[in-house]
């Protein structure tokens, strides 16, 4: 074998090995979550709030409720801003300000979650003088908006320009073209993007630490402190009690399931869009 051929084989082996390694790591992590998570699952886990200090049993119903409420409200707040900003950028392609907006969206996507959390604290919690689920939702909305903006723009750019021109040629105004043609044509893609963004914020912990703060009770009032699955995992993971550590694993399992579900729905929608395009 010539050295070149040898190098070719060695490098081929190495790149394949790194792929195998990645899969191995993933399998190990998922396996741990699955095994440790399922082991301690029981009905109470889903339906009960945490047991009072010192007692055994109890569950994370409070955190499940919290994750749903906080995520949904964050998405509800963030969607209009993100979508309209995305529409703006897509409709003003090539203009200087649209480029600035896009750059800001990109930059905001890179803001560390803990910074979002601190901002939520100083901007909302300090002003309202109370920890609250709502301030957590608003903090998460700051993460939700830039991703939604980018997704909306990208999906709108996929709408064939011929369709928009046909609408304009019929005398439609821009708002009508965007709503009735672009958005409708891109609806599945945008929904998919929203679901992906929701999957992302549903797993965020740092923005909740100093805003939602956590609560041992099942809380439905957005103006009060509230728990959430990621928060509960963090707190239980750091607890010295094995029973709580076990609950952290189970909560992690539930959270991963939830996120997978959201991602799966998003993928499914995307697949449908691609089929329609083809």
């Amino acid at each position: 074998m010539t050295p070149r051929k040898l190098k070719n084989s060695v490098m081929g082996f190495l790149v394949a090995a790194s792929a195998v390694l990645l899969i191995a790591v993933l399998v190990v992590i998922v396996w741990h979550i699955f095994i440790s998570g399922v082991k301690y699952l029981n009905w109470n886990f889903f339906t009960k709030a945490p047991a009072p200090m010192g007692e055994s049993g109890g569950g994370v119903f409070n955190a499940i409720v919290g994750t749903f409420l906080i995520t949904l409200v964050a998405a509800a707040i963030g969607t209009p801003f993100g979508m309209f900003a995305g529409i703006y950028v897509a409709e003003h392609r090539g203009r200087r300000f649209a480029d600035v907006v896009r750059l800001c969206a990109d930059a905001l996507q890179g803001v560390p979650s803990i910074v979002i959390g601190i901002f939520g604290y100083t901007f909302l919690v300090v002003r309202f003088r109370s920890y609250s689920a709502l301030s957590a939702s608003i903090a998460l909305a700051f993460m939700f908006v830039p991703t939604t903006t980018r997704v909306t723009e990208e999906v709108l750019n996929l709408v064939p320009s011929g369709l928009k021109e046909a609408a304009y040629a019929l005398g439609a105004r821009q708002s009508s073209v965007v709503w009735n043609v672009s958005i409708k044509t891109a609806a599945a893609g945008i929904t998919s993007g929203l679901l992906t963004s929701m999957a992302r914020i549903a797993g965020e912990t740092a923005p909740l630490l100093f805003t939602a703060f956590g609560s041992r009770y099942v809380e439905w009032n957005m103006l009060r402190p509230m728990s959430a699955l990621p928060l509960q995992i963090f707190i239980y993971a750091g607890s010295p009690y094995p029973a709580l550590q076990q609950q952290a694993w189970s909560a992690a399992f539930v959270l991963v399931l939830l996120i997978l579900l959201l991602q799966y729905s998003a993928k499914h929608l995307i697949a449908r869009v691609l089929r329609v395009k083809a």
Partner: peptide, 9 residues
């Protein structure tokens, strides 16, 4: 237009 472009939705 050159290409048929009925609105797909």
């Amino acid at each position: 237009f050159q290409r048929p472009n009925p609105f797909p939705t």
